[in-house]
């Protein structure tokens, strides 16, 4: 199971990198999102995967019964998804704003902050 998820993470990274290299800002951001999902899968696969019960503790008990899934990777991924979602929203808004300001989504053409100097 880990192998499949690991290969899947690799495919996502490849796809994300492909989109990010296309030179279009919107595709770049979509690529970043795919990359963030790949990172989440890496955590998931690294945290061992097994068919196991949810990590629920019976009322009054100190620890869950044996044979439960490890809740830590799930907690990490949840945190990362929430943060990634916020970053994605910001990045999309920024892309819209940048498109509005510069009239282009081609990243090579975005040179207001770093203008090419005319060398004569």
């Amino acid at each position: 199971m880990e192998t499949i998820v690991a290969v899947l993470a690799g495919l996502l990274v490849a796809g994300g990198a492909y989109l990010m290299l296309s030179g279009n800002l919107v595709r770049y951001i979509l690529g970043l999102t795919i990359l963030s999902n790949a990172a989440n899968l890496v955590i998931f696969a690294a945290g061992r995967m097994a068919k196991a019960a949810p990590a629920l503790t019976a009322y009054g008990a100190d620890a869950p019964a044996a044979g439960v899934a490890n809740p830590v990777p799930q907690a990490l991924i949840l945190t990362a998804i929430v943060i990634g979602f916020g970053l994605f929203c910001f990045a999309l808004t920024l892309a819209y704003r940048a498109f509005y300001a510069m009239g282009t989504a081609r990243m090579d053409a975005m040179r207001i902050a770093e203008p090419r100097e005319d060398r004569g």
Binding site: L32, L94, A95, A98, R111, A113
Partner: peptide, 10 residues
Amino acid sequence: SADGAVKYVG
């Protein structure tokens, strides 16, 4: 700053 932020964020 919108232009700078695109590079910074990306």
